[in-house]
């Protein structure tokens, strides 16, 4: 196994420290929201996880394009890694959103555009994993995965748009001006700082985890190749 790069160790440390600071900010720096109370604190990491989920799927689509262009299978490892991470973070996003919605919207679930889009996104990338698991030839698996990642990512904005033409009740917290969205609140400067710090923190964590997952993918590749060579 290749030695762990120094930069990765540093990144590990930075991620942990930033996550600790962000958590501290959420609980002790940002004020308690006046109407919703403590549950609003979930919001910071909820949005950050959603952002990282989108970022992962975007990465998978871009890497897919590069893979089809170059035909180099090392990009497939990155693609699979980012889809896996995207699923973990989208899951966090949807479940925390649902937990927040219970006291605020008085329901665990509504067919709100963002909620719907996030859920369909999870289904798309679960299908991605199923597609891959049905293909043995590694080159074909890489190509099909890349194509599906591109198609899936293209359909996401269209899904969001079509779900939005139905009326939504999701609060638009950033750049908001949507009357009628329940659970809407104005962020105080302290809240905004916490919010942006959480976004940056989760992005750093994403890079760190992606790196780890890519290394794992490479290791897997080596084991598979050695198995083929030895015929076991």
């Amino acid at each position: 196994m290749e030695a762990k790069p120094k930069l990765l160790s540093i990144l590990d440390g930075v991620s942990v420290v930033m996550l600790l600071i962000a958590t501290g900010m959420v609980f002790f720096y940002a004020p308690v929201e006046a109407v919703m109370g403590l549950v609003q604190k979930v919001f910071y990491f909820h949005v950050a996880a959603g952002w990282v989920g989108m970022l992962s799927f975007l990465t998978a689509a871009i890497v897919g394009i590069i893979l089809l262009r170059t035909g180099d299978r090392k990009w497939d490892i990155v693609g699979l890694a980012s889809v896996e991470l995207g699923l973990v973070f989208s899951f966090i996003n949807v479940v925390t959103g649902s937990i927040w919605a219970r006291p605020i919207w008085n329901t665990w679930w509504t067919w709100d555009p963002r909620l719907t889009t996030a859920t369909i996104m999870i289904l798309i990338y679960a299908a991605y994993l199923m597609l891959r698991s049905g293909i043995e030839d590694p080159d074909r698996r890489a190509r099909f995965g890349a194509i599906y990642a591109i198609l899936g990512f293209l359909s996401v904005p269209l899904t969001f748009f079509s779900a939005r033409l139905f009326r939504g009740i999701h609060p638009v917290v950033i750049g908001s001006n949507q009357p009628g969205a329940e659970g809407q609140f104005d962020m105080t400067p302290l809240m905004l700082q916490t919010f942006f710090f959480s976004l940056i923190t989760f992005t750093v964590i994403f890079v760190d985890l992606l790196w780890h997952r890519v290394r794992l993918g490479r290791l897997q590749d080596r084991v598979e190749q050695l198995k083929l060579k030895l015929n076991v």
Binding site: I120, M130, L131, I135, Y148, G152, L158, S162
Partner: peptide, 17 residues
């Protein structure tokens, strides 16, 4: 390998819009 069940699973989430 799983072709009989795979098509709707791949297709439906993408044609939702």
């Amino acid at each position: 390998r799983t072709r009989d069940v795979l098509l709707p699973i791949l297709l439906f989430p993408i044609v939702i819009p």
